[in-house]
């Protein structure tokens, strides 16, 4: 089991989801990104073109790093975020 000792991985226990229909977007709102203590939300341009400013940004979630505090649910003005236990 030597190889396991080298790893220090966070265990994924929750499932964080954003309702894309309700979400206003990270550029316009971004409340979840600004308030998350573990910074699990990631925003990225939908399509980046050389020489242009991209105005459409999508949000991805990396809930392996989620600490489960629930701040994002509280701060979302659209109530678009849900946290549930990950089903094994």
């Amino acid at each position: 089991m030597d190889h396991l000792r080298q790893l220090n991985l966070p265990e994924r226990t929750v499932n964080v989801q954003i309702n894309k229909e309700r979400c206003i977007g990270s550029v316009q709102c971004g409340a979840c990104l600004k308030n998350c203590p573990a910074a699990v939300f990631i925003t990225y341009p939908k399509a980046r073109v050389k020489g242009e400013v991209c105005s459409e940004w999508d949000i991805a979630i990396d809930d392996t790093f989620c600490w489960g505090c629930g701040v994002c649910v509280d701060v979302c003005p659209q109530n678009a975020i849900t946290i549930s236990e990950l089903e094994k």
Partner: peptide
């Protein structure tokens, strides 16, 4: 952006 923030995709396989 899409790649830098995400956790290493092979975690479960590694374990």
């Amino acid at each position: 952006e899409p790649f830098a923030g995400m956790s290493v995709p092979m975690n479960p396989e590694l374990l």
